[in-house]
Nucleic acid binder design. Structure first.
Length: 800
RNA sequence: GCCGGCGUGUCGGAAUGGCAGACGAGGCAGACUCAAAAUCUGCUGUCCGAGAGGGCGUGUGGGUUCGAGUCCCACCGCCGGCACCA
């Protein structure tokens, strides 16, 4: 058969869609399978080969599941709000709505041309008002339950994008969107209290099937630590100076304290402090440093003693000095620490620089040279001297502190609350109202959606306010509570809002009464298999788990976790082994491949190019190799013979069914395709194949190369669609050959291979092996010590 | 510094503790062709050997085992994440 992919690919895409093969059926009695991929951000650049790889895994699994008789939900949508579109709109002076619509159309056409089996009836666009109505609705639920709060603190701010960023959006001190340095600014910010869910986000990980590295990254990001809060006092006052420590066992080794420069107690006792001017100067110096300078460059500790203020150690009543230093962060713990220079390297360095006493309380190491952070017997520590390891000492000290009422067990998280407002136009308006009498008031649910007003000018304001602040008709409103003149919040939600619940909407995409009905959620949730990128592990994947857990707690969804199983694809690199980028000129456009070799070739190649989870460079020659494979598949129609094929081929077919079936489940797509290639080579060697066996082969290949296989199936006069035909079953008995070749080792070295009947006993196998000339020559004149026979694997003679 | 992952031909990569290098690419040789492309056939880890054959080979060094790419210990290198987190 001639392989005319340009004709057959659009033909089948249309036929499948017309026949509704990929439309998921709510409440079907078949078992359900919900496969999910991260919906694309519809950028003007169009689809990237990375999208193809990211979607292909769940695509293949979804197609296999349909053939296995499942009712499959494999949806797609568009994560359409966001800064890049807005920046492009500003640059080109076009409306982001228009650009978004154009890009969504473009993306949809491109996705269709690859033949992905998405259910196009459930497409969602996070920037359409019938979608973001529910994003706002969920936000109001969060507000109603006290998980939204406003605070003036130091926040991450991108001067280039003119926008406040969350911690997740500024990892490594760089803006997630433009990669410029993020600075710290004091600002009023709306936060979502994600830290409230820190423990649930951790414990939930134990119930889901995520790869270990994803779990570890989330655990790291959440950063739980267990320790104790201890009250020191400010000398000469009743003021408590609370600290957080993981090492309360070292309390007798405390020789000074350090507060973060911004600590509020400094201002409270400013009149007692004799060097307040110097402290103010130090604060300003710290504020000027970028996050990078503060954490990376400055290994040399800076700081300043607070003159006129000292602290009292509650365990021994000793008076100790207090310093301020920027190695202590206001945003973690209490913003103040007890310093134990003998057993903490940072404190040790600080003590050395400022000439502070060092008291060793754990035996071991050489504290002249560096802090000793190992375990050992307690010394110089009063009652604690009875203990000789960290765990016991901590326990004993904690009990003592609790009894005296000066300390208590506590936990801390590195994760910060989610800074949730953006000073930009292209996002969901935050449905809150500032009333001069009532304070912050929610927009009533029945007034949703709070529509994004149409404007001409999307430039962010120089005053740090969003463009919405310039629209009086939007800003001015009446308070829903008291009717007084009030003003709307003018910031919008971050990019991540819409994607935090989109997987719920797919279950009931057109519902205008609820974000999704409980019946449909109960039928479809949880997502059975979710594939996406590693870059979202500490962003979208955390955020969406948080929203979902919240919705579960208030009884609006039926599962505690949204995703039963998560996987991640490896990046496709340029052919030079570097990350694809326009500036390097190594970008591959998937549509070029579709036009040149066909969608099936593209699909087979991205799945065959290497281990699915690892990064691999693009290779044009290998793409051609995949095309060659499909050409040879098309050629199989010339090999159809009437007779039954050989037993050897039949065995191989059953082995291949087994291997392809298992490998797809294990995401080993490359070896699944390799097995199909091997079988194909064998069929060509054999010279003919029975029609029924060819159809089995086509079914196995169908999830990878659906167009070509469907076309051949039609030509063979197959009934219905191959795409939804039954997945082949294998007969375990037929996966084993009648005879098998096993290696024969002498002293662990392979010396020969012999053919033995399958399932033969040890004696027979050994006899056949000994009869082999080469084996015999190695055994000759040696004393046999041991004979090992592992059926189907190996024979080993141990001789002396 | 902490956490996770990975080191196998020229390249992408295969190998439930059992014949290392499947499959694909690349390379070399041949067939077809006026020629090229496409296609087809054979060879292709490395060293010694004319050959038969043999030695050595999965980052390094040890160990367990009849047998180790795979398990254990120590080390080296690379990638990713977190990071003055108290």
């Amino acid at each position: 058969m001639k392989y005319d992919f340009k004709k057959m690919e659009p033909k089948w895409q249309k036929k499948w869609e017309d026949a509704g093969l990929f439309s998921a059926e709510d409440f079907s009695s078949k078992p359900k399978f919900y496969g999910l991929v991260e919906f694309p951000y519809p950028s003007g650049a169009g689809m990237h080969v990375g999208h193809i790889k990211a979607y292909s895994s769940v695509e293949v699994i979804s197609r296999k599941r349909r053939m296995q008789g499942y009712n499959v939900l494999f949806p797609i949508g568009f994560d359409a709000f966001g800064l890049p579109t807005e920046n492009y709109a500003i640059k080109t002076n076009t409306h982001p709505r228009y650009i978004t619509d154009v890009n969504i159309k473009k993306f949809s056409d491109q996705l269709r041309s690859v033949g992905f089996s998405f259910d196009w009836n459930r497409v969602i666009d996070t920037s359409s008002d019938d979608y973001y109505k529910w994003t706002q609705w969920i936000f109001l639920k969060l507000f109603e339950h006290g998980l939204v709060f406003r605070d003036k603190t130091l926040v991450n701010y991108c001067p280039h994008c003119k926008v406040v960023l969350s911690n997740e959006d500024s990892q490594g001190g760089k803006c997630d969107i433009c990669h410029s340095d993020v600075i710290q600014l004091p600002k009023d910010v709306w936060y979502l209290r994600i830290t409230e869910y820190a423990d649930k986000l951790l414990s939930g990980l134990e119930t889901v099937e995520y790869p270990e590295n994803i779990k570890q990254q989330q655990i790291n990001w959440i950063g739980k630590s267990t320790g104790a809060f201890v009250d020191f006092t400010i000398d000469g006052t009743d003021e408590k100076l609370e600290i957080y420590t993981t090492r309360c066992d070292t309390l007798y080794g405390v020789t000074f304290m350090v507060m973060a420069p911004e600590h509020p107690l400094i201002d409270k006792y400013a009149d007692r402090i004799s060097n307040m001017d110097a402290i103010r100067a130090y604060r300003e110096e710290c504020a000027k440093k970028t996050e990078f300078e503060r954490t990376q460059l400055v290994k040399d500790k800076t700081g300043l003693k607070i003159e006129g203020l000292s602290a009292v150690n509650p365990v021994n009543g000793k008076t100790i000095p207090i310093f301020i230093a920027d190695y202590v962060m206001m945003g973690y713990g209490t913003g103040a620490i007890m310093a134990v220079p003998a057993h903490d390297q940072r404190d040790w360095e600080f003590a050395h620089k400022f000439g502070i006493d060092i008291i060793q309380v754990i035996e071991g190491g050489d504290i002249e040279k560096e802090a000793y952070t190992g375990d050992g017997k307690m010394i110089n520590s009063d009652f604690l001297n009875a203990y000789s390891n960290k765990k016991d000492s901590i326990e004993a000290m904690l009990a003592w502190l609790q009894e005296k009422g000066i300390g208590r067990a506590g936990i801390q998280f590195k994760m910060k609350d989610w800074a949730f407002n953006r000073q930009r136009y292209w996002g969901e308006p935050i449905p809150l109202i500032h009333c001069p009498k009532c304070g912050v008031v929610a927009v009533p649910y029945e007034e949703l959606p709070l529509r994004l007003p149409d404007v001409k000018d999307f430039e962010p304001g120089e005053d740090g306010k969003s463009p919405l602040a310039r629209i009086d008709s939007f800003v001015n409103c009446t308070c829903p509570k008291c009717g007084a003149a009030a003003k709307r919040e003018t910031d919008t939600m971050p990019q991540w809002a819409g994607s935090s619940w989109y997987f719920l909407r797919y279950t009931d995409a057109h519902n205008d009464k609820e974000f999704a009905s409980m019946d449909k959620l109960k039928y479809w949730m949880p997502v059975d298999w979710y594939n996406g990128g590693m870059e979202h592990v500490t962003r979208h994947l955390i955020y969406s788990r948080f929203w979902h857990q919240f919705l579960y707690d208030i009884g609006l969804v039926n599962t505690p976790e949204p995703y039963a199983k998560r996987t991640a694809q490896g990046m496709i690199l340029g052919s030079d082994g570097e990350k694809m980028s326009k500036s390097r000129g190594n970008v591959v456009d998937p549509l070029d491949i579709v036009n040149l070799y066909g969608a099936d070739t593209l699909r087979v190649y991205v799945m065959f190019m290497g281990d699915y989870g690892s990064a691999a460079p693009w290779n044009d020659s290998s793409v051609k190799g995949c095309r060659r494979f499909l050409d040879r598949v098309a050629g199989l129609t010339d090999l159809i013979g009437e007779q039954e094929s050989t037993p050897a081929l039949e065995t191989m077919l059953h082995k291949t069914i087994k291997k392809v079936s298992e490998d797809i489940e294990a995401q080993k797509f490359n070896t699944a395709i390799a097995a199909l290639m091997t079988l194909l080579n064998e069929i060509y060697k054999n010279g003919s194949i029975a029609k029924g066996e060819l159809i089995t082969f086509l079914k196995l290949l169908s999830p990878f190369a659906p167009h070509l296989t469907e076309e051949i199936y039609e030509q063979l006069g197959g009934e219905g669609f191959l795409t939804v035909s039954e997945w082949p079953a294998y007969d375990e008995a037929k996966t084993v050959d009648a005879t098998i070749e096993v290696g024969v080792q002498v002293n662990g070295k392979v010396r020969a291979a012999v053919t033995i009947p399958v399932g033969c006993d040890k004696d027979t196998a050994l006899r056949i092996a000994r009869e082999n000339e080469r084996v015999a020559s190695f055994l000759e004149g040696k004393k046999l010590v041991k004979e090992i026979y592992v059926p189907g694997k190996i024979l080993n003679f141990v001789v002396k």
